[in-house]
Design a protein around this nucleic acid. Structure first.
Lengths: 158, 158
DNA sequence: TAATTATTGTTCCATATAGAACAACATTGT
DNA sequence: ACAATGTTGTTCTATATGGAACAATAATTA
Protein backbone atom coordinates (compact mmCIF):
# COMPACT_ATOMS: atom_id res chain seq x y z
CA UNK A 1 0.00 0.00 0.00
CA UNK A 2 1.51 3.21 -1.19
CA UNK A 3 1.41 6.42 0.84
CA UNK A 4 -0.27 9.07 -1.25
CA UNK A 5 -0.54 12.80 -0.87
CA UNK A 6 -3.57 13.54 1.22
CA UNK A 7 -3.15 10.51 3.44
CA UNK A 8 -1.83 12.76 6.16
CA UNK A 9 -4.58 13.51 8.60
CA UNK A 10 -4.25 17.22 9.10
CA UNK A 11 -6.84 17.24 11.84
CA UNK A 12 -4.61 15.24 14.18
CA UNK A 13 -3.41 18.50 15.53
CA UNK A 14 -6.92 19.41 16.66
CA UNK A 15 -6.62 16.94 19.50
CA UNK A 16 -2.87 16.91 19.98
CA UNK A 17 -2.45 20.60 20.58
CA UNK A 18 -2.02 21.79 24.14
CA UNK A 19 -4.99 24.18 23.99
CA UNK A 20 -7.48 22.28 21.83
CA UNK A 21 -10.53 24.47 22.31
CA UNK A 22 -8.82 27.79 21.78
CA UNK A 23 -6.98 26.27 18.85
CA UNK A 24 -10.22 25.29 17.18
CA UNK A 25 -11.70 28.72 17.68
CA UNK A 26 -8.53 30.07 16.12
CA UNK A 27 -8.78 27.53 13.33
CA UNK A 28 -12.37 28.48 12.59
CA UNK A 29 -11.27 32.08 12.45
CA UNK A 30 -8.50 31.26 9.99
CA UNK A 31 -10.65 28.92 7.95
CA UNK A 32 -13.81 30.95 7.84
CA UNK A 33 -13.72 34.42 9.35
CA UNK A 34 -10.66 35.81 7.63
CA UNK A 35 -11.41 34.29 4.23
CA UNK A 36 -14.84 35.84 4.58
CA UNK A 37 -13.29 39.27 5.07
CA UNK A 38 -11.27 38.51 1.95
CA UNK A 39 -14.44 37.69 0.05
CA UNK A 40 -16.06 40.92 1.19
CA UNK A 41 -13.01 42.83 0.02
CA UNK A 42 -12.97 41.15 -3.36
CA UNK A 43 -16.70 41.07 -4.03
CA UNK A 44 -17.76 44.34 -2.42
CA UNK A 45 -14.55 46.36 -2.32
CA UNK A 46 -14.56 47.00 1.42
CA UNK A 47 -11.73 46.07 3.75
CA UNK A 48 -12.34 44.77 7.23
CA UNK A 49 -12.52 48.06 9.09
CA UNK A 50 -14.74 49.52 6.39
CA UNK A 51 -17.15 46.68 6.63
CA UNK A 52 -17.11 46.85 10.41
CA UNK A 53 -18.14 50.48 10.21
CA UNK A 54 -21.04 49.60 7.99
CA UNK A 55 -22.12 46.78 10.24
CA UNK A 56 -22.01 48.85 13.40
CA UNK A 57 -23.84 51.80 11.93
CA UNK A 58 -26.47 49.55 10.45
CA UNK A 59 -27.38 48.62 14.02
CA UNK A 60 -26.88 51.85 15.94
CA UNK A 61 -28.41 55.13 14.81
CA UNK A 62 -25.15 56.98 15.40
CA UNK A 63 -21.70 56.28 16.76
CA UNK A 64 -18.39 58.05 17.05
CA UNK A 65 -15.34 56.52 15.42
CA UNK A 66 -14.03 55.71 18.85
CA UNK A 67 -17.15 53.80 19.74
CA UNK A 68 -16.87 51.75 16.59
CA UNK A 69 -13.27 51.01 17.50
CA UNK A 70 -14.38 49.79 20.89
CA UNK A 71 -17.27 47.71 19.59
CA UNK A 72 -15.14 45.98 17.00
CA UNK A 73 -11.90 46.01 18.99
CA UNK A 74 -9.97 47.47 16.11
CA UNK A 75 -7.33 50.18 16.50
CA UNK A 76 -8.60 53.74 16.16
CA UNK A 77 -6.37 54.59 13.25
CA UNK A 78 -7.76 51.74 11.17
CA UNK A 79 -11.24 53.03 11.83
CA UNK A 80 -10.18 56.60 11.11
CA UNK A 81 -8.82 55.59 7.72
CA UNK A 82 -11.92 53.58 7.01
CA UNK A 83 -14.20 56.49 7.93
CA UNK A 84 -12.66 58.70 5.27
CA UNK A 85 -13.01 56.10 2.59
CA UNK A 86 -16.60 55.33 3.58
CA UNK A 87 -17.42 59.04 3.48
CA UNK A 88 -15.92 59.27 0.00
CA UNK A 89 -17.88 56.23 -1.09
CA UNK A 90 -21.04 57.83 0.23
CA UNK A 91 -21.84 55.00 2.62
CA UNK A 92 -21.52 57.14 5.72
CA UNK A 93 -22.13 60.71 6.74
CA UNK A 94 -20.49 62.61 9.54
CA UNK A 95 -22.04 65.29 11.72
CA UNK A 96 -19.91 67.25 14.18
CA UNK A 97 -20.92 66.95 17.80
CA UNK A 98 -21.72 70.45 19.14
CA UNK A 99 -21.24 69.31 22.71
CA UNK A 100 -17.73 67.93 22.07
CA UNK A 101 -15.70 69.45 19.30
CA UNK A 102 -13.23 66.59 19.32
CA UNK A 103 -15.60 64.03 18.04
CA UNK A 104 -18.19 63.60 15.31
CA UNK A 105 -21.20 61.35 15.09
CA UNK A 106 -21.27 58.91 12.21
CA UNK A 107 -24.40 57.70 10.51
CA UNK A 108 -25.07 55.26 7.73
CA UNK A 109 -26.56 56.62 4.49
CA UNK A 110 -29.21 55.07 2.32
CA UNK A 111 -26.48 53.82 -0.02
CA UNK A 112 -24.68 52.39 2.98
CA UNK A 113 -27.77 50.51 4.02
CA UNK A 114 -28.13 49.03 0.57
CA UNK A 115 -24.53 47.90 0.62
CA UNK A 116 -24.97 46.50 4.10
CA UNK A 117 -27.95 44.46 2.98
CA UNK A 118 -25.99 42.99 0.11
CA UNK A 119 -23.05 42.01 2.25
CA UNK A 120 -25.26 40.69 5.02
CA UNK A 121 -27.15 38.46 2.64
CA UNK A 122 -23.86 36.94 1.62
CA UNK A 123 -22.71 36.46 5.21
CA UNK A 124 -26.01 34.96 6.28
CA UNK A 125 -25.52 32.41 3.54
CA UNK A 126 -22.00 31.67 4.71
CA UNK A 127 -23.23 31.26 8.27
CA UNK A 128 -25.88 28.79 7.20
CA UNK A 129 -23.30 26.79 5.29
CA UNK A 130 -20.91 26.59 8.19
CA UNK A 131 -23.47 25.66 10.81
CA UNK A 132 -25.31 23.21 8.58
CA UNK A 133 -23.15 20.52 10.12
CA UNK A 134 -24.94 20.94 13.46
CA UNK A 135 -28.41 19.71 14.27
CA UNK A 136 -31.02 22.23 15.36
CA UNK A 137 -30.52 21.21 18.93
CA UNK A 138 -26.74 21.43 18.70
CA UNK A 139 -26.99 24.76 17.01
CA UNK A 140 -29.19 26.08 19.81
CA UNK A 141 -26.69 24.77 22.25
CA UNK A 142 -23.77 26.33 20.47
CA UNK A 143 -25.57 29.64 20.25
CA UNK A 144 -25.97 29.74 24.01
CA UNK A 145 -22.33 28.87 24.67
CA UNK A 146 -20.81 31.23 22.13
CA UNK A 147 -23.01 33.98 23.50
CA UNK A 148 -21.55 33.45 26.95
CA UNK A 149 -18.03 33.42 25.60
CA UNK A 150 -18.51 36.52 23.45
CA UNK A 151 -20.12 38.43 26.27
CA UNK A 152 -17.29 37.46 28.56
CA UNK A 153 -14.71 38.41 25.97
CA UNK A 154 -16.34 41.81 25.66
CA UNK A 155 -15.63 42.46 29.33
CA UNK A 156 -11.92 41.71 29.04
CA UNK A 157 -9.61 44.67 29.15
CA UNK A 158 -8.18 45.66 25.85
CA UNK B 1 -30.14 61.01 34.99
CA UNK B 2 -27.19 61.91 32.85
CA UNK B 3 -26.01 59.74 29.98
CA UNK B 4 -22.37 58.95 30.56
CA UNK B 5 -19.72 57.45 28.36
CA UNK B 6 -19.80 53.71 28.75
CA UNK B 7 -23.56 53.60 29.10
CA UNK B 8 -23.76 52.42 25.54
CA UNK B 9 -24.26 48.69 25.50
CA UNK B 10 -21.79 47.57 22.92
CA UNK B 11 -23.01 44.01 23.04
CA UNK B 12 -26.39 44.94 21.56
CA UNK B 13 -24.95 44.13 18.21
CA UNK B 14 -24.35 40.53 19.27
CA UNK B 15 -28.05 39.87 18.97
CA UNK B 16 -29.02 42.46 16.39
CA UNK B 17 -26.62 41.33 13.72
CA UNK B 18 -28.02 39.27 10.86
CA UNK B 19 -25.61 36.37 11.42
CA UNK B 20 -25.30 36.28 15.21
CA UNK B 21 -23.41 33.02 15.60
CA UNK B 22 -20.85 33.64 12.92
CA UNK B 23 -20.48 37.18 14.22
CA UNK B 24 -19.64 35.95 17.69
CA UNK B 25 -17.09 33.49 16.39
CA UNK B 26 -15.61 36.39 14.48
CA UNK B 27 -15.76 38.57 17.57
CA UNK B 28 -14.00 35.96 19.66
CA UNK B 29 -11.35 35.77 17.00
CA UNK B 30 -10.89 39.53 17.04
CA UNK B 31 -11.03 39.77 20.81
CA UNK B 32 -8.87 36.81 21.67
CA UNK B 33 -7.16 35.04 18.82
CA UNK B 34 -5.66 38.01 17.08
CA UNK B 35 -4.46 39.76 20.24
CA UNK B 36 -2.92 36.46 21.25
CA UNK B 37 -0.87 36.39 18.05
CA UNK B 38 0.17 39.93 18.94
CA UNK B 39 1.26 38.81 22.39
CA UNK B 40 3.27 35.97 20.92
CA UNK B 41 4.94 38.41 18.57
CA UNK B 42 5.77 40.87 21.32
CA UNK B 43 6.75 38.41 24.04
CA UNK B 44 8.41 35.71 21.96
CA UNK B 45 9.36 37.50 18.75
CA UNK B 46 7.52 35.19 16.39
CA UNK B 47 4.87 36.30 13.91
CA UNK B 48 1.82 34.24 13.18
CA UNK B 49 3.20 32.05 10.41
CA UNK B 50 6.37 31.45 12.38
CA UNK B 51 4.46 30.31 15.40
CA UNK B 52 2.23 28.14 13.27
CA UNK B 53 5.29 26.38 11.93
CA UNK B 54 6.50 25.70 15.43
CA UNK B 55 3.10 24.45 16.52
CA UNK B 56 2.70 22.09 13.58
CA UNK B 57 6.17 20.66 13.82
CA UNK B 58 5.82 20.16 17.54
CA UNK B 59 3.04 17.70 16.72
CA UNK B 60 4.20 16.02 13.54
CA UNK B 61 7.67 14.52 13.22
CA UNK B 62 8.17 16.13 9.83
CA UNK B 63 6.22 18.18 7.35
CA UNK B 64 6.85 20.02 4.13
CA UNK B 65 6.19 23.75 3.96
CA UNK B 66 3.21 23.02 1.77
CA UNK B 67 1.73 20.70 4.34
CA UNK B 68 2.07 23.33 7.02
CA UNK B 69 0.33 25.78 4.72
CA UNK B 70 -2.54 23.36 4.30
CA UNK B 71 -2.83 22.52 7.98
CA UNK B 72 -2.89 26.15 9.02
CA UNK B 73 -4.64 27.48 5.90
CA UNK B 74 -2.07 30.14 5.39
CA UNK B 75 -0.68 31.10 1.99
CA UNK B 76 2.46 29.28 0.93
CA UNK B 77 4.56 32.38 0.60
CA UNK B 78 3.89 33.36 4.20
CA UNK B 79 5.07 29.95 5.30
CA UNK B 80 8.05 30.11 2.98
CA UNK B 81 9.18 33.38 4.50
CA UNK B 82 8.61 32.04 7.97
CA UNK B 83 10.64 28.90 7.27
CA UNK B 84 13.73 30.93 6.45
CA UNK B 85 13.48 32.97 9.58
CA UNK B 86 12.87 29.90 11.74
CA UNK B 87 15.89 28.20 10.19
CA UNK B 88 18.00 31.27 10.95
CA UNK B 89 16.69 31.30 14.49
CA UNK B 90 17.60 27.64 14.85
CA UNK B 91 14.08 26.54 15.71
CA UNK B 92 13.72 24.35 12.63
CA UNK B 93 15.93 22.23 10.45
CA UNK B 94 15.36 21.31 6.85
CA UNK B 95 16.31 18.08 5.14
CA UNK B 96 15.95 17.73 1.37
CA UNK B 97 13.60 15.00 0.23
CA UNK B 98 15.57 12.56 -1.99
CA UNK B 99 12.37 11.25 -3.54
CA UNK B 100 11.17 14.69 -4.60
CA UNK B 101 13.72 17.38 -5.26
CA UNK B 102 11.11 20.13 -5.16
CA UNK B 103 10.35 19.79 -1.55
CA UNK B 104 12.15 19.49 1.76
CA UNK B 105 11.06 17.99 5.04
CA UNK B 106 11.01 20.31 7.99
CA UNK B 107 11.66 19.25 11.56
CA UNK B 108 11.64 21.06 14.84
CA UNK B 109 14.93 21.38 16.72
CA UNK B 110 15.55 21.06 20.40
CA UNK B 111 15.60 24.86 20.67
CA UNK B 112 12.35 24.95 18.77
CA UNK B 113 10.78 22.56 21.22
CA UNK B 114 11.86 24.68 24.13
CA UNK B 115 10.35 27.76 22.50
CA UNK B 116 7.19 25.84 21.72
CA UNK B 117 6.84 24.81 25.34
CA UNK B 118 7.19 28.38 26.50
CA UNK B 119 4.60 29.71 24.08
CA UNK B 120 2.25 26.81 24.73
CA UNK B 121 2.33 27.40 28.46
CA UNK B 122 1.25 30.96 27.82
CA UNK B 123 -1.53 29.93 25.46
CA UNK B 124 -2.80 27.23 27.80
CA UNK B 125 -3.13 29.92 30.42
CA UNK B 126 -5.03 32.18 28.03
CA UNK B 127 -7.34 29.31 27.12
CA UNK B 128 -8.11 28.63 30.75
CA UNK B 129 -8.87 32.28 31.30
CA UNK B 130 -11.26 32.51 28.37
CA UNK B 131 -13.15 29.33 29.12
CA UNK B 132 -13.31 29.93 32.83
CA UNK B 133 -16.70 31.50 32.21
CA UNK B 134 -18.16 28.09 31.30
CA UNK B 135 -19.02 25.35 33.75
CA UNK B 136 -17.34 21.98 33.33
CA UNK B 137 -20.43 20.63 31.70
CA UNK B 138 -20.75 23.59 29.34
CA UNK B 139 -17.13 23.37 28.49
CA UNK B 140 -17.46 19.70 27.61
CA UNK B 141 -20.43 20.60 25.51
CA UNK B 142 -18.62 23.40 23.74
CA UNK B 143 -15.65 21.17 23.08
CA UNK B 144 -17.82 18.67 21.27
CA UNK B 145 -19.53 21.32 19.15
CA UNK B 146 -16.41 23.26 18.22
CA UNK B 147 -14.78 19.97 17.28
CA UNK B 148 -17.57 19.26 14.83
CA UNK B 149 -17.34 22.73 13.38
CA UNK B 150 -13.57 22.67 13.05
CA UNK B 151 -13.59 19.25 11.46
CA UNK B 152 -16.23 20.40 9.04
CA UNK B 153 -14.32 23.57 8.25
CA UNK B 154 -11.26 21.50 7.50
CA UNK B 155 -13.16 19.73 4.72
CA UNK B 156 -14.21 22.98 3.01
CA UNK B 157 -12.39 23.79 -0.20
CA UNK B 158 -9.85 26.50 0.08
C1' DT C 1 -8.57 80.14 37.44
C1' DA C 2 -4.54 77.67 36.07
C1' DA C 3 -2.16 73.50 35.41
C1' DT C 4 -2.32 68.75 34.60
C1' DT C 5 -4.22 64.76 32.64
C1' DA C 6 -7.28 62.28 29.43
C1' DT C 7 -9.65 61.72 25.06
C1' DT C 8 -10.56 62.02 20.03
C1' DG C 9 -9.25 61.71 15.60
C1' DT C 10 -5.41 61.98 12.65
C1' DT C 11 -0.83 61.31 10.12
C1' DC C 12 3.43 59.01 9.72
C1' DC C 13 5.96 54.96 9.57
C1' DA C 14 7.42 50.18 9.87
C1' DT C 15 5.83 45.65 9.23
C1' DA C 16 2.82 41.75 8.15
C1' DT C 17 0.36 39.89 4.62
C1' DA C 18 -1.52 37.91 0.30
C1' DG C 19 -1.58 37.69 -4.78
C1' DA C 20 0.89 36.97 -8.99
C1' DA C 21 4.45 35.31 -11.54
C1' DC C 22 8.32 32.33 -11.72
C1' DA C 23 11.85 28.40 -12.02
C1' DA C 24 12.63 23.84 -10.90
C1' DC C 25 10.93 19.50 -10.68
C1' DA C 26 7.25 15.76 -10.85
C1' DT C 27 3.22 13.57 -12.79
C1' DT C 28 -0.03 12.39 -16.24
C1' DG C 29 -1.66 11.15 -20.60
C1' DT C 30 -0.87 10.15 -25.38
C1' DA D 1 9.51 9.35 -25.19
C1' DC D 2 7.25 13.59 -25.30
C1' DA D 3 4.11 17.17 -24.36
C1' DA D 4 0.97 19.08 -21.30
C1' DT D 5 -0.30 19.84 -16.73
C1' DG D 6 0.39 20.14 -11.79
C1' DT D 7 3.22 20.99 -7.62
C1' DT D 8 6.75 23.12 -4.58
C1' DG D 9 9.03 26.78 -2.87
C1' DT D 10 10.51 31.31 -3.89
C1' DT D 11 10.75 36.42 -4.99
C1' DC D 12 8.53 40.63 -6.14
C1' DT D 13 5.05 43.90 -5.35
C1' DA D 14 1.01 46.20 -3.62
C1' DT D 15 -1.84 46.72 0.23
C1' DA D 16 -3.66 46.25 4.90
C1' DT D 17 -2.45 46.85 9.39
C1' DG D 18 -1.11 48.54 14.04
C1' DG D 19 2.01 51.38 17.02
C1' DA D 20 3.68 55.85 18.13
C1' DA D 21 3.41 60.53 18.17
C1' DC D 22 0.64 64.59 17.50
C1' DA D 23 -2.77 68.66 17.69
C1' DA D 24 -7.12 69.96 19.29
C1' DT D 25 -10.34 69.75 22.74
C1' DA D 26 -12.35 68.28 27.19
C1' DA D 27 -12.17 66.87 31.99
C1' DT D 28 -9.95 66.86 36.33
C1' DT D 29 -7.39 68.60 40.01
C1' DA D 30 -4.78 72.05 42.67
Amino acid sequence: MVKKKGDLDYSNIFEAVEFPDAYKVSYLANAIVFPTYEDVRKDFGLVRAEYHLLLCLAHYPELTAQEVARITRRPRNSISRAVHRMLDLGFLKRVPDPSDARQAKLQITKEGKIMHKKISAYLVEREAEIFSILSDRERENFRELIRKLANFASTLKR
